[in-house]
Design a protein around this nucleic acid. Sequence first.
DNA 1: CGAGAGTTTGACCGTTTTCAATGCATGTGG
DNA 2: CCACATGCATTGAAAACGGTCAAACTCTCG
Lengths: 250, 250
Amino acid sequence: MTRVVYPAVARWRAADDGDATRFCSTCAFSSACLGQGMDKSALRDLHMLVEHVGPFTPGQHVFRAGDPFEAIAAVREGTVKTWRVDREGREQVLGFHLPGEIIGLSAIENERYPCNAVALDEAQLCRFSFPRIAVLAARVPGLQKELFRLMSRDIGHAERLAGDHPADARLAAFLHDLGERLARRGFPPGRVHLAMPRADIANYLRLAPETVSRLFRRLQDAGLLRARGRDVELPDLPGLARLAEPALGN
Amino acid sequence: MTRVVYPAVARWRAADDGDATRFCSTCAFSSACLGQGMDKSALRDLHMLVEHVGPFTPGQHVFRAGDPFEAIAAVREGTVKTWRVDREGREQVLGFHLPGEIIGLSAIENERYPCNAVALDEAQLCRFSFPRIAVLAARVPGLQKELFRLMSRDIGHAERLAGDHPADARLAAFLHDLGERLARRGFPPGRVHLAMPRADIANYLRLAPETVSRLFRRLQDAGLLRARGRDVELPDLPGLARLAEPALGN
DNA sequence: CGAGAGTTTGACCGTTTTCAATGCATGTGG
DNA sequence: CCACATGCATTGAAAACGGTCAAACTCTCG
């Protein structure tokens, strides 16, 4: 299947891995929907609709701000960063998306992506044509509910991101959250590999990269952290959670 | 019709105005849906589902964080403020909702409201049972699309709120945006009445109330503003937009 | 008129940013 | 193999932006 190729970067590249028939178990939909009254036939319909894309290479765009919106995507493997660019050209990182998480939902409003998405490492995605998944959602209540839930979750995420909290609490919350999300995907707990440079973490948390660096040091001195480059151990998750407390949304 | 009454405050109070048969024209749904392929019968179904509630008196809660989620609501008249409370008890204002705007969409994820909503002035709402509107949305593609769009919009709003910008740009953007939204509802442009105290504006923008006060002065001295209490004239909208530029999300 | 909430103003303080330099990997070509 | 370039991370010193504290002021309402 051929897809539109933009100058310099091919996007939504069709996957050439042959396992398109096996529904991917990490996907945000399959697990949630099975528990929510989506029956086998509905799952098959959803499966018909999935398009495995990737691998994306580090730095490769998944979509760009302004692109016409056609599909949402679930990260299947790797990490995807999304960010906006304001009128001054300043960037604002919106999120780091791990396997099982959905990107593109904010594009529905204007039928254009309001942000950019780029793979931070080797990444694989499951692409869902939005018009088609919307039609399916009308037939399958469990899927509709799941879509609503995913969008609602993104609202909550962005709202928490907008919160005003001390820098150390924000970083602690970020690391703790990342650890939890990775653990939920089966990665070893208390140990995270950061797919992104410090500057991206800083931007995401509205901090200067230098501040993040200093905070890493302070957390390390406090015994909450052991960082060697992008490999970070979190030997005291409860302590980290305590520090993150002010930034935890309720 | 009787509704649950919580300690101290009656919520979702049934309206006693007799115009429940006339579909309210400011509502976020009617206008958008009419243009999107929702036919008369679908509109009638939607209408069957609406419940006019209010008036809420200033300070009266529409819902509280932790309440079980049953319905979303469109502001029909007045202004509603929503805010979260973090674990430290600190509040974070999430938005000010004008007539035609929807509240409650962030509650879908956990089937509990994650935030509080309170009327800032005399307010009237249209309440939509969420389970019922979801069922209707499955039958009426235009309605489903509209719900997706509204949720997507909330994601975008929260993402912009999370942006990192100078205090003056944020305030300018806030006032400019408020002016636009009011103008869109037929209020005279270049003139806004703030339903909320300075402290709420400050909190919303992650600033101290004193900073907001000083910024009002600076904007006034710059000729971008004329404030007498909560009545604000915006004699130079383009200038305001220019100042707001850094905070405008593309 | 007085009470009380909300707003404004001033002085000072502190966290985070900015600027600048250094350190530390990794990779490349001589 | 070494010299050097490049990108990212770290560290230090100074500055700035916005916050905090405290007091005065304004307005509304009883």
